[in-house]
Design a protein around this nucleic acid. Structure first.
Lengths: 140, 140
DNA sequence: GTTCATGCAAAAGGTTTGCAGTCAT
DNA sequence: ATGACTGCAAACCTTTTGCATGAAC
């Protein structure tokens, strides 16, 4: 479970798993797909769990560093996260008309990416592939 | 040349090619690689060409819509542009340690992407592939 | 009693917008 | 005249930060 991962990461840095950090972790763990910081704040607030905006913004990077979530997509200029390995890894088709996001996985593309990295003596840690265009619906 | 493209797009919308818009176009055309709005403003200013920040910010989206430049990378939360088809199309390896950006082209990956789109009945207009990690230099 | 955390409110930083004055048609 | 355009400054919005208070070790 991700709590253990988080605790370990925190311990390594001499940091504590406070109620606030735990609340953010739990909330994030319960989410499906992408989410923005503001969403986490809102959902916690709606549940009556009080965690300040600042703490949420301070906690999310810790979760990234713990390998629990990762930055997924940059849209507008908001940071959007998603859980790591939620479904291994996937990329995105983004409809520029209706905003719909289709996830896809392509093993061949992944392999080719690795090859590109090798050729450039580059050690990859993450990647983002976004294809923008029009979805089925909006093509008409 | 891109001026014609821009003029046509503007005409279609009943807009004018003003000196300010032209100045932005010229500056952008003279740039290599990626650039940010602020960079355009600065360079114009240094040349003594006076175009307000607002006008630059208002012109860049017009250039995108004209197909002359495109949004390339989202880093921090700044918009970075690059000229369209400057070198066909390329993707990026981004070193998270030193910020170095390596461009690469992989025709096989492009082809696979097209296939993914077909499978999803998606009509792509642009895409971004960013691989983050450590470059040669920073691996040590 | 240090060190770490929190919340608040202010600051930051890129981008957008309202507005009054100008210019082209 | 009408509609488009500009510059300025203020507004916006997400994210970050300084600071005082408070909890943990």
């Amino acid at each position: 479970m991700s709590k253990a991962k988080f605790e370990e990461h925190l311990r390594k840095l001499g940091l504590r798993l406070t109620p606030e950090r735990n609340a953010v972790l739990q909330e994030v763990a319960s989410l499906q797909g992408h989410f923005e910081p503001e969403e986490v704040i809102l959902r916690l607030r709606r549940k009556g769990v009080n965690v300040s905006r600042a703490s949420v913004y301070r906690t999310l990077p810790l979760l990234v560093a713990s390998g629990i979530i990762e930055e997924a997509i940059y849209k507008d200029r908001k940071t959007r996260y998603e859980k790591c390995a939620e479904s291994e890894h996937h990329d995105h088709l983004i409809c520029t008309s209706c905003g719909k996001i289709i996830e896809f996985v392509s093993q061949p593309i992944e392999l080719l990416q690795e090859e590109v990295c090798r050729r450039n003596r580059f050690r990859p840690s993450s990647h983002t592939l976004e294809i923008r265009g029009l979805c089925d619906h909006c093509t008409a």
